[in-house]
Design a protein around this nucleic acid. Structure first.
Length: 875
RNA sequence: GGACGCUUAGCUCAGCUGGGAGAGCGUCUCCCUUACAAGGAGAGGGUCAGCGGUUCAAGUCCGUUAGCGUCCACCA
């Protein structure tokens, strides 16, 4: 019994077991070194949770490229891995612990890390199971984790090397501090949101006087750290006070009034308080005037001893209390509503506190310059779409140093050690020999410090491994534009610094995935879509097709159930077309190549269309235009192959001409096989199922080759086919308009001037009889075209369908008049162009020829319509 | 305050280097025809946001305005 596809397309059944089969056959991990390499390293998902639809999108695009390139003859490597995601993961783990009433300090560092590794294992397993469901062709033999031993070696190497070059330093600076996570953040981990806050005005009374300066601030709780007030030296209102002292209303301390043109005369009262430990600009002033930098806050965001009676209060409680007290004592004069940009921690959403603290920094200017220089060379990273390169450049041109230390436990420990007695700093890949005299830095590195090395650290760097040699630089990075600055930029500058080359040749950005209303998917809205639920309902192939073919590089997409269902329908169509083909193949059918000399007109036409489709699909995949390549496939498969070719093939298959049947089966087989190979990158499961049904269960479509273009001149036959299609389509419209049942036979007269076309149509009358459902069919160089009925004047062909009682002479005349008018318009347009000397002088010859050909066609049709009209009116 | 994106059919969106606007879904008509009714055959539907410019020719290039959106930026 020959193998068949089941009657119904059931994604679950089709997809079941395929992934394990691919794994068993080592199809993801076998590397043929005789082929050119093609590498994609997965953007490592965070081990914070399950993958969401955005991951599914990202990874499907990657997998599609991998599978496409494999079919194109590359030795592909799709390298999997995950990110420890320092803050994010630690926050999640602490949250889970909190529910059990445990804090990380109860456990201590070591114990906490054990818990964290358990967490990692749990989520890694989950993520792998999701990758499996999606069908990603990942080589698990090379899977990496940002916190594994090899990557730790890379991270340490980079840290030590940059330190030795003077590009990493430890310094006391104002950093963004998250008092909830109790850690420093880098600048881009702060999200500024427009927030309605208050602008408070306080009296700073001048020493030994009744006078006072009014100072406006949005953060009264930092007043305990004020060291002076500042006015603009040009500000006439306050010049007389410069050099005097004022009383800080929060604590009664005397502080001086100084002058600096940093102060904006028009903002607030034109007097600014200066708090060097709690504001980056004030810090700069502090440095400039060598001021003290008292810190008035603890690491948990509570006020410290400088706040006296407010000590221990949370910063915002202290603010409230202080304002209330000062209002009562008359020192708070005014409170205004004020809209300003307030920074929030990306992970914890806590309001970020600018905070003076000792942290590790990467000196960015030299690294940025190298990356910018790279982009001036031939070996630059190519951005798709190119506009993102501008964002990249602008950011690097205005870069500030990167704060890389984090007061966390889950991450790469900073390889710095401090001498217990001397305080001397030791930085090295290995601990100092007399380790007992040292204490290692407690902090870990920013997660992005390790992910910046991902494209090469995963391949074994800093060791000179075979993989690194072969697969690096990687070919394309596919990721969302939302992490351009976090990750992509950093991989590029670290890649240049440490590997002296770009880490990837191309970078393709996709957008965000939104819900049906266009809203960002988020936990708080509860509008997230679980990719696994979609897969369970429609299949991974459907989800993949939806995600890949509905997007344009760099733009967001909406998740739309209608479109997902359209993708399912498309697969169902392919399934049924495949069933038809397979059903018609006899048990002993063997494909032995196409006999190009024995092809029918429909055969030649579909092969020409196949050629065009292969080219269009390949070209667009090469340009990352997945939506366009999807459109070409869709149109070819649904319209050309299913609607036309399969229907036409039934004519031959039902005939007794054995040779013709064999040829038709060959073409059906050949085109179907080409189709499933081309859809394989989009729909790996169903294409494999069809492939195995055509062949056998132990072979895989993954070992096939991308279809190649058949070198043959199909042009004339395609024209014949197009003539047949236009005749059939015209008649179908006529039947609908005139309410003639599709199976009711009609008479049909076709007049063709061109002898070659005339003969070809006569040779292929069987298709016209069948699809036009004709009774009498006359195809001649001269035939009856007038009378009660409908005349069509097509390109090079005229048709007449006698319909007495339905269309009388008068209507026929009206129809012709309409047609003539339309043609006159077209002719006028063509003439307008062709008679325009500027057009003739400047337009490309190709365009001119096209217009000339059009004009010729219109004129001949016009002529014929005129003649017909005349013979009708003269009757 | 800078930079960028979007505005095309009722809805969601394509339209790559300028040369008579397309798809999916929805709507309307007909059809259970031997791969598929989650289907087939047809039809209708758009001054491509407004204005100006370049060009023989603009949805496409340039400028500008408006609406929506995103990113970056230290104004107390």
């Amino acid at each position: 019994m020959k193998k068949q596809l089941s009657t119904k397309y059931e994604a679950r059944k089709v997809e079941e077991g395929k992934y394990d089969f691919w794994l068993e056959k080592n199809l993801f991990s076998e590397h043929d070194k005789s082929k050119p390499p093609f590498t994609i390293v997965i953007p490592p998902p965070n081990v914070t949770g399950k993958l969401h639809l955005g991951h599914a999108w990202d990874e499907t695009l990657q997998d599609m490229m991998i599978r496409y390139k494999k079919l194109r003859g590359y030795d592909v490597l799709y390298l999997p891995g995950m990110d420890h995601a320092g803050i994010a993961t630690q926050a999640k783990i602490e949250e889970r612990l909190r529910k059990q009433g445990i804090s990380r300090y109860d456990l201590g560092r070591e114990k906490f890390l054990e818990v964290a590794w358990d967490w990692k294992k749990e989520y890694a397993d989950f993520i792998r199971s999701q990758w499996k469901k999606l069908g990603l062709a990942l080589d698990y033999t090379k899977e990496r984790f940002t916190l594994d031993e090899g990557l730790n070696e890379a991270v340490t190497h980079v840290f030590v090397s940059l330190y030795e070059k003077g590009l990493i330093y430890r310094g006391e600076r104002i950093i963004n501090y998250d008092p909830v996570q109790k850690t420093a953040l880098s600048n881009i981990e702060v999200i500024y949101k427009e927030t309605e806050s208050s602008l408070y005005y306080f009296k700073y009374i001048i020493e030994g006087s009744e006078d006072y300066l009014e100072v406006a601030t949005t953060r009264p709780e930092t007043m305990f750290g004020d060291v002076c007030v500042v006015v603009n030296p040009e500000d006439e209102r306050y010049q007389k006070y410069i050099g005097k002292n004022v009383i800080n209303p929060s604590n009664g301390q005397l502080i001086p009034i100084i002058a600096d043109d940093y102060v904006d005369v028009s903002f607030g009262t034109g007097v600014m308080k200066c708090t060097p430990a709690h504001d980056p600009n004030d810090f700069i002033l502090g440095e400039k005037y060598n001021l003290e930098k008292p810190i008035c806050m603890n690491e948990d965001g509570t006020i410290n001893h400088l706040g006296h009676k407010y000590e221990g209060l949370d910063r915002f409680d202290a603010r409230q209390q202080l304002v209330k007290d000062l209002q009562e004592s008359g020192l708070c004069t005014k409170i205004e509503k004020h809209i300003n940009q307030v920074g929030y921690s990306e992970r914890s959403d806590a309001i970020v506190e600018p905070y003076l603290s000792k942290q590790w920094f990467v000196k960015m200017k030299p690294l940025a310059k190298q990356a910018l220089d790279l982009q001036q060379t031939e070996n630059k990273v190519n951005f798709y779409p190119p506009r993102f390169e501008k964002t990249f450049e602008m950011w690097l041109e205005n870069i500030e140093d990167w704060c890389i230390s984090r007061q966390l436990w889950w991450g790469h420990r900073i390889p710095a050690y401090y001498h217990k007695d001397t305080g001397e700093v030791y930085v090295g890949a290995n601990p100092p020999k007399d380790i007992e005299n040292y204490i290692q830095d407690e902090d870990v590195l920013d997660t992005w410090f390790s992910s910046a090395l991902w494209p090469f650290s995963t391949l074994g760097w800093p060791n000179k491994t075979e993989d690194l040699e072969r697969y690096y630089p990687t070919d394309v990075l596919i990721t969302g534009y939302d992490i351009l600055l976090f990750w992509v930029v950093r991989m590029i500058f670290q890649g240049v610094e440490f590997t002296k080359t770009r880490p990837f040749k191309d970078v393709l950005f996709h957008g965000l995935i939104r819900d049906e209303q266009g809203r960002k998917m988020s936990k708080s809205l509860g509008n997230g879509i679980d990719p696994i639920e979609v897969i369970d309902k429609y299949g991974a192939d459907t989800l993949r097709h939806f995600l890949t073919t509905n997007s344009t590089p760099g733009l967001d997409i909406r998740y739309q159930v209608d479109k997902v269902e359209a993708s399912w329908n498309f697969i169902n169509k392919i399934w049924n077309a495949s069933r038809f083909v397979i059903h018609n193949l006899t048990e002993d059918y063997q494909f032995e190549g196409l006999n190009l000399n024995n092809l029918s007109v429909p055969d030649k036409w579909i092969l020409k269309r196949l050629n065009e489709t292969i080219k269009a699909v390949s070209d667009n995949l090469d340009k990352y235009e997945f939506g366009l390549s999807g459109n070409y496939l869709y149109k070819f498969i649904w319209d050309d192959f299913c609607s036309w070719y399969i229907e036409l093939s039934k004519v031959t298959l039902n005939s007794n001409d054995k040779d013709a049947v064999q040829t038709t089966l060959d073409v059906l087989y050949y085109v179907l096989k080409s189709i499933i190979i081309m859809i394989h990158p989009l729909m790996p499961f169903v294409s494999e199922e069809i492939y195995q049904t055509l062949h056998s269960d132990d072979v895989s479509i993954m070992n096939e080759s991308w279809p190649s273009i058949i070198e043959h001149d199909f042009d004339f036959y395609a024209e014949v086919m197009e003539a047949i299609i236009s005749v059939v389509s015209s008649l179908r419209t006529l039947r609908n308009e005139e309410n003639i049942a599709p199976n009711k036979k009609i008479d049909l007269y076709i007049q063709v001037e061109d002898e070659k076309l005339l003969n070809a149509l006569n040779d292929n009358r069987v298709y016209l009889e069948r699809f036009a459902v004709s009774n009498t069919l006359e195809i001649a160089s001269k035939t009856n075209l007038v009378g009660e009925g409908k005349t069509f004047i097509l390109k090079g062909i005229e048709l007449f369908v006698p319909l007495s009682g339905l269309i009388d002479i008068e209507e026929q005349i009206n129809n012709l008049k309409k047609e003539i008018k339309k043609l006159e318009g077209e002719i006028a347009r063509c003439n307008g162009m062709l008679n325009n000397p500027s057009f003739m002088a400047k337009a490309p010859q190709k365009k001119i020829d096209e217009e000339k050909a059009k004009l010729e066609d219109y004129q001949s049709r016009y002529q014929k319509a005129k003649e017909l009209l005349e013979s009708l009116t003269s009757k």
